[in-house]
């Protein structure tokens, strides 16, 4: 089972992000479960959503306390919330930021270097969608970083979630992020 935790702020669409990820897994014929952290938070407050992906039926109903991957939609949360809590030693971390992990003060983290990546998801969203909604970008980056979900399944999930131009723009943002994250991973390993 692969478990994902998405951290963001109320209004940024963390729940939608988790649901699209689950939908993409479903489209690949796998079992998945997305659920919110169930708060009564309002716009701007720190929020969390979870996603589990598995080849077997998922019966577990506890929150994700030991994630395999973290998606961080808002870098301002880095020093406010205990983001890395429970992350497995081989876990993945994807941060929405134009700064490098070093610049974000994350160099000392005990995770494999090629599992920790920051890229400007909001900027990519602005370019392709015209609005600062980093969801699809982050999910595209997730596909490249973890290989857990195929980019085509993600694009299909986006197409089911949105329609018309919104769908197309979000797919473009996902695709662009997939490429950018893929390239910077190669750069890191080269």
């Amino acid at each position: 089972m692969f478990q994902v935790r998405i951290h963001g702020r109320g209004g940024q669409g963390v729940v939608t992000g988790a649901e699209m990820l689950a939908l993409a897994a479903f489209l690949e014929g796998r079992y998945s479960q997305a659920f919110p952290s169930f708060g009564s938070e309002r716009m701007g407050a720190p929020v969390v959503a979870f996603c589990r992906i598995s080849d077997q039926e998922i019966r577990l109903r506890e929150p994700v306390t030991m994630p395999d991957a973290l998606l961080i939609q808002d870098p301002t949360l880095l020093h406010q919330v205990d983001l890395f809590s429970g992350l497995s030693k081989s876990g993945f971390i994807l941060i929405n930021s134009g700064k490098s992990p070093d610049e974000l003060g994350l160099s000392g983290l005990p995770y494999p270097e090629d599992h920790l990546l920051a890229f400007p998801a909001t900027e990519i969203a602005l370019k392709h969608i015209g609005r600062p909604l980093p969801n699809s970008s982050l999910l595209g980056g997730f596909c490249a970083l973890t290989g857990e979900i195929g980019i085509d399944s993600l694009k299909e999930a986006i197409g089911r979630r949105f329609s018309g131009k919104t769908a197309k723009d979000n797919m473009a943002a996902a695709e662009a992020s997939f490429t950018i994250v893929g390239e910077s991973m190669h750069a890191a390993t080269d």
Partner: peptide, 12 residues
Amino acid sequence: VDGFILTHAYEQ
């Protein structure tokens, strides 16, 4: 039906 745990879970 368990609130949130089921009502807000997105699954197949």
